[in-house]
Computed example of a mutant assay.
Amino acid sequence: MVKLRDRNFVISTVVTIVAIIASVAVSGFLNSRPDKVDVAITGTAGVVVLDRANELGAEKDVSFTGHAVADRAAVEQQVRDGAVDVGLVAAEPDGWQLIGKTAENDDATTYITAAAQQLALQRNAAAAGVTMDELAQGAGVDYTLLEKNAIDPGLAKIVAFVFAFLFYLASLLFGMSIAQSVIEEKQNRIVEILASAIPLRQLLIGKVVGNAVLAFGQLVLFVVAGLGGLVFLGKADQLGRIAGAAGWFIVFFVVGFLALASLWAVAGSLSTRSEDLQSTSTPLSMLIMIVLFAGIFLSGTARVIASYVPITSIIAMPSRLAEGTAAWWEPLIALALMAAATYAIVIVAEKIYRRSLMQTQGRLTLRQALALED
């Protein structure tokens, strides 16, 4: 309850939600902006090609603007100077050549090439005395999707990155909060008063469960904001699978966070000053970074294996569910493994926490803490 009334916590939560909504809005704005390509051309034939390219690109908001110049040398100079994006010149025999500076322009390659081919087919059809339909007979291609509800691969990568980022953000923010609160209680000797009133085991449970509930609530708000952004971007058709993967991510995170929170409490109990926390929390921070990078960069068999490894499965398994590469029973097995590992970690962490919490003489190591008597 104190955390919920903390102004910094509330502001950071609101700012993060606004950032998610803003990023989605900016992404939607950038995707909706028309692509404009400036093209240097020579002669009227180039104008005809660009007119047809504009017709083909209209559906995707791609437009081409022609800039007439004297000859090929002038076209090349315009491209070198950056005055235009690409050049278009006639090439023998009766063809065209696109000229770029350092890389190909995808829009020009796609639509200007298609426009030139269509115009050439029309001329050839007229010369042969046939219609375009007759000339194109037998060339139709239909596209059948075997998995119509599958998520777009690019969107799946974005979802995996978002899962990894949210895991990293929540783990560090709430974890550091737990560790700092333990250190403050040791420094102020409040822990001695608390220890006389309640068992230390209950004190640890309160910290872990309380912060897990806060992390759960915050993640739900972030996920809802992100899913709302998908609707805004016109991705509502893929909302079902992403929402399912996001639900699994929250479940995996909450179960895994119980273990991480216990370890953060241990990091705080091993310290006597805030300055000690950097040393005692380094292994845990490294673990979180490893999970972050594994969730973003692992692929193929490595990702499948990671989706069953406790902690890394927080990101890897929901990401596979978003991609559609995991069967329905796989998250159940991975979650069971996570729960078993969490139980074992909490038992060990609770023992270290109880033995080191009342020690205020100096920073302890794990070996020293385990050697202490209960």
Rank of each mutant, 00 (worst) to 15 (best):
Leu298Asp: 03
Val304Phe: 05
Ile242Val: 14
Val251Ala: 06
Val304Lys: 07
Val231Arg: 04
Ile250Phe: 07
Val213Gly: 15
Gln218Val: 03
Arg201His: 15
Ile311Phe: 02
Thr272Leu: 11
Glu185Cys: 12
Val304Tyr: 07
Val209Gln: 12
Ser177Glu: 07
Ser281His: 08
Arg201Gly: 14
Ser271Ala: 02
Ala243Phe: 04
Arg241Cys: 10
Asp237Glu: 13
Gly240Trp: 13
Leu270Val: 04
Ile205Asp: 10
Pro310Met: 12
Ala179Lys: 07
Gln278Glu: 14
Val254Phe: 05
Leu239Lys: 02
Pro283Lys: 10
Val254Cys: 02
Val231Glu: 09
Ser279Met: 10
Ile205Thr: 15
Ala245Trp: 10
Ile290Arg: 06
Ser281Gly: 13
Lys235Arg: 14
Phe222Gln: 06
Val309Lys: 06
Leu270Ala: 06
Lys235Ser: 11
Arg303Gln: 10
Phe249Gly: 05
Ser285Trp: 15
Ala212Leu: 01
Leu258Ile: 11
Glu184Gln: 08
Phe253Trp: 02
Ile305Gln: 01
Gln218Phe: 09
Leu284His: 13
Leu292His: 12
Leu233Glu: 08
Gly256Leu: 05
Val231Gly: 14
Tyr308Ser: 07
Leu263Thr: 06
Gly228Trp: 05
Lys235Ala: 15
Ala259Ser: 12
Ala302Met: 11
Ile296Thr: 05
Ser262Asn: 01
Arg303His: 03
Phe253Asp: 01
Ala215Cys: 04
Ala197Ser: 15
Gly210Ile: 07
Ala197Pro: 07
Ser177Arg: 02
Gly247Trp: 06
Ser279Arg: 05
Gly226Lys: 01
Asp237Trp: 09
Leu194Gly: 03
Trp248Asp: 06
Trp264Asp: 00
Ile305Ala: 14
Gly217Tyr: 09
Gly228Leu: 13
Val182Tyr: 00
Ile296Pro: 05
Ile205Ser: 14
Val224Ser: 09
Leu239Ser: 05
Ser196Val: 10
Leu194Ala: 12
Val255Cys: 00
Pro199Ser: 11
Lys186Tyr: 13
Phe222Asn: 03
Gln180His: 10
Ile242Cys: 01
Glu275Ile: 08
Trp264Ser: 01
Leu227Gly: 15
Gly229Val: 05
Ile296Asn: 10
Phe222Glu: 03
Val304Trp: 02
Val291Tyr: 10
